[in-house]
């Protein structure tokens, strides 16, 4: 009545399963002496930390820096609730956040300076729209200007690309352009998340406008110059960001709690050191110390 082959299979599979569990558990225990530093937040700061983590691992093999994206809001939130050791933020910490996490004592470290640049598809840039004023950009995001021809471009509808509300890049951009970091953008046609995603959508379109960190500009997505009060257009160059001429700049921050662990402090110090600052520069940002 018993099926022999099936009984055989039953026991062999069971023993293999046991073996697999054993291997799994021993693998899990073998590295127990490493220290993890958990970092999460802004996709603008992420390249710096991710690259720094790769190099840091060569010097300190027993420390692992675990990096996660999500945006500046997530960075503060996860740090404040104790899920991470370091937050990456691409805007200033708000009073509300300081207040909300008063018990953990948020502490910031500026690791670099970046610009938020209004960007357009390369086709629009080539067609002659190379600089705009703040009011012009604001009217596009408010939905008052919907065709490039109204501001000296070709007769094409503007694809207005917005960003998720919690993104640091958006908050910096909106507070300069619209005067309110949480301003709504009724003119927006798409809402995207990370710099990568926004860059892709801009490159895939031939009539888009969006906002990007300076480090994401390339041949497909061109940064606009900004005209302030009838002055000359200010190009989004590193030099202009460095000397403070370009009007939408921001500090890139790492944030910690007051109970920062020694390895995490070491890692922050590494990013502030000359080697770390070199990575900041290679990532397309301005270093904060020479």
């Amino acid at each position: 009545m018993q099926d022999h082959s099936s009984t055989m299979r039953y026991s062999t599979v069971m023993s293999r399963l046991t073996l697999a569990i054993f291997v799994l558990v021993s693998a899990a225990c073998s590295q127990a002496d490493t220290v993890n530093i958990n970092v999460s937040g802004s996709s603008t700061v992420l390249p710096v930390v991710s690259r720094a983590a790769e190099q840091y691992a060569q010097e300190m093999p027993e420390v692992r820096v675990v990096v996660n994206a999500g945006g500046s809001g997530v960075g503060v939130k996860q740090l404040g609730s104790g899920q991470t050791d370091i937050g990456m933020i691409s805007r200033d910490i708000t009073d509300g956040e300081y207040e909300q996490y008063a018990d953990v004592g948020l502490k910031t470290y500026a690791i670099g300076v970046d610009a938020v640049v209004p960007v357009v598809s390369s086709e629009i840039y080539a067609a002659g729209v190379t600089s705009l004023t703040f009011p012009q950009i604001a009217s596009i995001y408010r939905g008052e200007v919907t065709n490039w021809s109204a501001i000296g471009g070709p007769d094409l509808e503007i694809l207005v690309i917005d960003k998720e509300a919690s993104r640091g890049t958006r908050q910096v951009f909106m507070s300069k352009i619209m005067g309110n970091k949480n301003a709504t953008a009724p003119g927006a046609k798409l809402v995207l998340g990370s710099n990568n995603e926004e860059q892709t959508a801009l490159a895939q379109s031939d009539a888009a406008i969006g906002m990007l960190s300076h480090a994401w500009l390339n041949d497909d997505v061109k940064g606009l110059s900004i005209i302030i009060a009838d002055g000359a257009p200010i190009e989004p160059t590193l030099a202009n960001i460095k000397n403070g001429q370009f009007p939408i700049t921001r500090n890139l921050l790492l944030v910690s709690r007051s109970d920062l662990s020694a390895p995490a402090q070491d890692f922050i110090d590494y990013i502030l050191s000359p080697e770390g600052q070199k990575i900041v520069e290679e990532s397309g940002y301005i270093r904060v110390s020479e």
Binding site: L156, I158, L159, K189, L190, Q204, A208
Partner: peptide, 13 residues
């Protein structure tokens, strides 16, 4: 990309 091209849209999303 196809939807964008086919209907001549600014964005295929």
């Amino acid at each position: 990309v196809w939807v964008g091209d086919l209907f001549d849209l600014q964005s295929g999303r």
